[in-house]
Simulated assay, not measured.
Amino acid sequence: MQQVSKLHYHRHSKLLDVWFADDLQVQFSAELLRVLSPSAEVRGHGTPQLVANKRDVGITQMLPVGQYAVRLVFDDGHNSGLYSWSYLRQLHEQRDTLWQEYLARLKAANAVRDAKLEVRFHSGV
Rank of each mutant, 00 (worst) to 15 (best):
M1I: 13
Q3T: 13
V4H: 00
V4D: 01
V4A: 03
L7I: 08
L7P: 01
L7S: 00
R11T: 15
H12Y: 12
S13V: 11
S13H: 10
K14H: 12
L16D: 03
L16W: 02
D17P: 01
D17Y: 09
V18S: 06
V18T: 04
W19P: 03
W19Q: 12
F20Y: 07
A21K: 08
D22P: 03
D23I: 01
D23G: 05
L24V: 14
L24G: 07
Q25D: 10
V26Y: 01
V26K: 04
Q27I: 13
S29N: 05
S29G: 12
S29C: 05
E31M: 10
E31P: 04
L32S: 10
L36V: 08
S37W: 07
S39A: 11
S39E: 07
A40W: 09
A40L: 13
R43H: 07
R43S: 10
G44T: 06
Q49P: 01
Q49R: 14
L50F: 02
L50C: 06
L50E: 01
V51L: 07
N53R: 08
G58N: 05
T60K: 08
T60F: 03
T60D: 09
Q61T: 08
M62K: 07
L63M: 13
V65E: 12
Y68C: 02
A69Y: 00
A69T: 01
A69E: 00
V70R: 01
R71P: 00
L72N: 00
V73A: 04
F74D: 00
D75E: 04
D75W: 03
D75P: 03
D76A: 00
D76G: 04
G77S: 04
H78Q: 09
H78E: 04
N79K: 14
S80V: 06
S80H: 13
G81W: 02
Y83G: 03
Y83D: 05
W85H: 14
W85G: 02
S86Q: 15
L88T: 08
R89M: 11
Q90Y: 15
Q90A: 13
L91M: 15
E93S: 12
Q94I: 08
Q94L: 09
R95I: 10
T97K: 11
T97Q: 15
W99H: 14
W99R: 12
L103Q: 13
L103D: 07
A104C: 06
R105Y: 05
L106A: 05
L106G: 06
K107V: 05
A108T: 09
A108M: 07
A109N: 08
N110F: 04
N110W: 02
V112I: 12
R113C: 11
D114L: 08
E118S: 08
V119F: 07
V119W: 03
F121K: 12
F121M: 15
H122K: 11
H122S: 14
H122V: 11
S123P: 10
G124A: 02
G124R: 02
V125N: 15
